[in-house]
Design a protein around this nucleic acid. Structure first.
Lengths: 196, 196
DNA sequence: TTGCTAAACGGGACGTTGTTCCGTATCGTC
DNA sequence: GACGATACGGAACAACGTCCCGTTTAGCAA
């Protein structure tokens, strides 16, 4: 358990320069290929795009989930941080919830195949599920609590269920333009409203 | 298009007895394997269960979609016929819609992987999409129209969108018992309600 | 009953993809 | 400049969908 460079001892040894370079190259290549072919793109394609061997991918990102997380981490963080910001922005909690769900949907539908893989029961994607849920469910829960406290919505739907539902609504939205995930998600949220 | 034994010409020639027998055997085997391993089960597994070669499956059911349709046709028909029945059963149109969606969800969540495949963009599943949509969307549309005419719901959501949304909500519902597709679908429908 | 032909069959062959292994090249240090 | 650990590349293996081809068999007629 050498703490490579963290708080305590100085680095046991930093990663080699070529390794760090390849990781960056791989992230860029993966991002490009994900856009072009979806997050299910063949490993060989990503390796080819990056100009490395397939084993190099597995060395840096043991599972596909690790690669996906690394590629989209920034955007997920941004989405998570938008939650409290929206809540503080002055609108009603319900409006904040509605807009935040919109952000989440927009993120998912622009990542081909991500919503689907988020629903996969493949054990290899457990890390991906865990990351998304850990990072976003608490944010959603805060928005739900605020709206419930304001008497705008019912309070008997757990945040995790809602997130799963919204995520599911985004599956396959990237093709056929007749499918409007955002609208359906809005409908789902509207279903939470209490009559006043 | 040959009317094998129907009204017009006498049969060009009826299918061989072993072929008919194998088709039945395959349907039974597929149904069993689908229950055990989902509708994505390897072709070889189904063939083995039926005691036939893999080519025999492709001969009878050129695409997986054809096999799935054949296995579930009865249940889809039953669901389609339940729509008008519910509408005539005396409750409000909205209640009928709600219950019919419940039937649809119950059907989907008990067929491992079917909801997911219904969302696949693989061209091989086009026939499956078409069948489900052709058969069920008109039923849903009638329920929606009735409820809209009664002033219970808004009328600006096409039936096909709603069906897609509900179908999506059912994806992955077969595992983790914490996910309640039926409840979320109910929420989606509730989102259609008009304030009175 | 026996022989013929088209229908149907079975399993092996091929292509694609994920994953792992092993010999080789390279980095960083002495 | 030499050495050891690190990292690399591509071949090898396994699982699966799909297709092909040589063989078997049902159905019919002589």
């Amino acid at each position: 358990m050498n703490d490579s460079d963290g708080g305590g001892g100085r680095a046991a040894r930093p990663r080699r320069a070529d390794a760090r370079r390849n990781e960056k190259t791989l992230l860029d290549a993966a991002a490009a290929v994900f856009v072009a072919s979806g997050v299910d793109a063949p490993v060989r394609d990503i390796a080819a795009k990056a100009g490395v061997g397939t084993a190099t991918i597995y060395r840096h990102f043991p599972t596909r989930a690790d690669l996906i997380i690394a590629v989209y981490r920034h955007q997920v963080e941004a989405c998570a941080e938008a939650g409290p910001a929206l809540l503080a922005s002055g609108a009603t909690p319900y409006a904040a919830l509605e807009r935040w769900i919109g952000l989440f949907v927009d993120f998912l539908v622009t990542k081909h195949g991500l919503a689907a893989v988020l629903r996969s029961d493949d054990a290899g994607f457990d890390a991906l599920h865990a990351y998304f849920l850990d990072r976003l469910v608490p944010v959603c829960a805060r928005l739900l609590d605020a709206a419930a406290a304001a008497g705008e919505i019912r309070s008997d739907i757990p945040a995790i269920q809602l997130m799963r539902g919204v995520g599911n609504l985004c599956i396959g939205a990237e093709h056929d333009p007749d499918y409007d995930a955002r609208r359906l998600a809005g409908l789902l949220i509207a279903g939470l409203r209490l009559p006043r």
